[in-house]
Nucleic acid binder design. Structure first.
Lengths: 117, 117
DNA sequence: TGAATATATGTGCATATGTTCATATATCTT
DNA sequence: AAGATATATGAACATATGCACATATATTCA
């Protein structure tokens, strides 16, 4: 791999940083979590579910997606344990299953609002 | 677009959710922010810069990427105003330019640590 | 000025992602 | 049981993403 010629400008700093950074698996799972929030429609879905428990039908109507598309996204959110669900007859009601998500959303919103173009 | 036959199970809830959700542009920019955190290498980079101001060379060494790859990622982080930089001779030193990012990282880390597989 | 070094950028490519469409499954109603 | 409805899933497709590689730019130093 190409590196700088001195190889390192300040190897002490580099060493410090290396030990500070989390392990590979943790990094991967953090990225996985953020990636789940990295799509406007999923932000919408999560925001909707933060507001109200909803069945797939109402959810997809609220966020303007087809039930199929919503269902696909719900599956990945389910796999990440970000949403939970309960069946009630033909309907399946989804809601958030993670206390961090709402805080993340709130932080993200703050960031965006403080950096209006 | 395919919808449920009743069209809506609970249109009042749907209406409530619709008004609760942010506007399109805000949603897009929130997703954009989270997407920036949605890659293990970028989490690494941001974590590294949260620890220490670093030049591209030391940064890429610390996170195990080629300087080129790091530079590419730094560009997108720059475009999102998540990192700032200063030139010092041949080197360019990068650091975080957003107070929310560290909190987001911390939240994400917490989530991951509380959901160990 | 010219060589060397750090960083930036353009291009191409392999892979990942999100949606649509078709179809499957589950539940309710008659 | 059969039809209707809500949800889930599989496949295919267009687009986005991240990296390597080549090359450009900027700065230092001889």
């Amino acid at each position: 791999m190409p590196t700088c010629d001195v190889n390192l400008v300040d190897s002490e700093k580099v060493q410090k940083v290396r030990t500070a950074i989390a392990d590979k698996d943790t990094l991967f799972r953090m990225a996985e979590l953020f990636k789940a929030l990295g799509d406007p429609n999923r932000v919408k879905i999560i925001w909707a579910l933060a507001t109200e428990e909803l069945c797939v039908c109402d959810l997809s109507s609220a966020v303007g997606m087809t039930p199929s598309a919503a269902s696909h996204q719900l599956r990945s959110l389910r796999n990440l344990k970000l949403v939970k669900f309960r069946r009630a007859g033909q309907m399946v009601y989804y809601s958030l299953d993670d206390k961090h998500i709402e805080m993340l959303l709130a932080q993200g919103l703050e960031h965006v609002q403080e950096n209006r173009r």
